[in-house]
């Protein structure tokens, strides 16, 4: 896009949210998705309690990262004051709901509660996407295509963790590899859509470079390797390790993308002259 006198200027990388914020999206995305996919895999029963515990710990770790980043940590509960419009508040409420439902499910043995918790986990993942979209000061975050991308990336991470764990336990089933192939393909589609939208925008050169390196990682490590390895695991029953490799590559690529998105591909909006010069009182049309 050729610069004009109305182009944005003064863009610089935001230095406000750092790796700790990325940690929330990485751990929260993986944990919430692990909860959802492990419950789905065990449906209509209840997933292994250790998996559910790991999922909750990951969500908690993500929130703990954020807690270390806020300026007034002892006021942290004020985060709950604005559910009307703030997706950060909604994320906090959903996290609390997940913990409450899982605790109630563990205490009563009612499977339905953990099923509801897994739906809440998907909502948590959606909240994470909306948190980024609502950040209107960062063009790479506010792009609407970020929401399906964050959701898809989270789902891949959760399923990848599940595949890794069950493979280590020697209990991997072909359906998991098939699901991984499906989700990895979905994430690639979400990524390509996001990238094409960003390429069509006036993003700065530095952002373009970061997204280009992400492109190679997401499509190479995060898509091609998992697709081939998972297909091999499906085709050759003895090649379970290939499935683990697929899961590892898919998860690492997602985490790498999120880290870059928050810490390196987040140039601020900058400033610009308005290209709509008007004359007359702004309320004249009322």
């Amino acid at each position: 896009m050729k610069p004009t006198k109305f182009s944005r200027f003064g863009t610089s990388h935001q230095a406000i949210w750092d790796w700790r914020a990325a940690g929330n999206f990485i751990c929260g995305g993986a944990g919430s998705s692990l909860l959802a996919v492990s419950t789905f895999a065990a449906f209509p029963g209840v997933a292994d309690g250790r998996l559910l515990l790991l999922a909750v710990l990951l969500i908690g770790a993500g929130l703990a990262f954020v807690w270390t980043e806020i300026g007034r940590p002892w006021r942290a509960f004020n985060v709950l004051f604005h559910p009307q419009t703030s997706w950060m508040t909604r994320e906090a409420y959903v996290a609390a709901l997940i913990v409450a439902l899982l605790a109630a499910g563990a205490a009563t043995g009612v499977a339905f509660l953990s099923h509801i918790a897994s739906l809440a986990a998907l909502l948590f993942l959606y909240c994470q996407g909306r948190i980024l979209k609502a950040a209107r000061g960062i063009p790479t975050w506010r792009e609407p295509a970020i929401v399906p991308l964050i959701v898809a990336t989270g789902l891949v991470e959760g399923l990848s963790l599940l595949v890794l764990i069950v493979t280590m336990q020697g209990a991997a089933v072909p359906a998991m590899f098939a699901a991984l192939i499906l989700l990895v393909a979905l994430r690639a589609a979400a990524w390509l859509r996001y990238r094409s939208r960003m390429n069509a925008s006036d993003m700065p050169l530095s952002t373009r470079r970061v997204l280009q390196s992400s492109h190679l990682a997401v499509l190479g490590v995060g898509t091609a390797v998992p697709l081939v390895a998972a297909a091999l695991a499906l085709a050759v029953p003895m090649a379970a390790l290939a499935g683990a490799l697929a899961a590892l590559a898919a998860a690492v690529a997602g985490w790498h993308f999120k880290l870059l998105l928050i810490t390196r591909a987040a140039q601020v909006q900058g400033y610009a002259l308005g290209n709509k010069l008007r004359r007359g009182h702004p309320f004249a049309a009322r």
Binding site: I16, W17, V66, G71, P73, R136, G137, V268, Q269
Partner: peptide, 13 residues
Amino acid sequence: IGCSYCAVACPYQ
């Protein structure tokens, strides 16, 4: 609480 969400949401720095 100093979460700075407002700062990344502000398009005017």
